[in-house]
């Protein structure tokens, strides 16, 4: 139990840092990094529960999935960011307000 709670604390720290980054940064790449942090926080959680609670392999599988998903997401997100940069000359998310009335 002790081991588990330490992992959970690590995970909570990672999640909070990630969330903070996402909310405060205007730089799209920084936001993306924050999201990566959040995802990895979830990964840590999965592994921890898998290891200490269920003793099954599903949690690991989930982690692998998320890593893969994160890679795909990063690819797509970077592509969007690249386009944003081409259009606006910067990657400031505040300025990407073309849909706003």
């Amino acid at each position: 139990m002790h081991a588990l709670s330490s992992y959970l604390i690590l995970s909570a720290l990672l999640f909070s840092l990630g969330l903070y980054t996402v909310i405060t940064r205007k730089n799209a790449v920084a936001i993306l990094m924050g999201i990566e942090l959040i995802l990895n926080a979830a990964n840590v959680n999965f592994i921890a529960f898998s290891k200490f609670v269920t003793h099954h392999v599903e949690g690991h599988l989930m982690a692998v999935f998320i890593i893969m998903l994160a890679a795909a997401e990063a690819a797509v997100a970077l592509a969007i960011i690249l386009n944003l940069y081409n259009d606006h000359g910067n990657i400031n998310v505040d300025e990407a307000n073309a849909l706003k009335r």
Binding site: L19, V22, I23, T24, I31, V93, D94, N97, L99, K100, R101
Partner: peptide, 17 residues
Amino acid sequence: LKFVQTGKIQNYLIYVL
């Protein structure tokens, strides 16, 4: 209420939080 709708994801995230 439309003024709540800033279009900034960060704002929304704060609301969620």
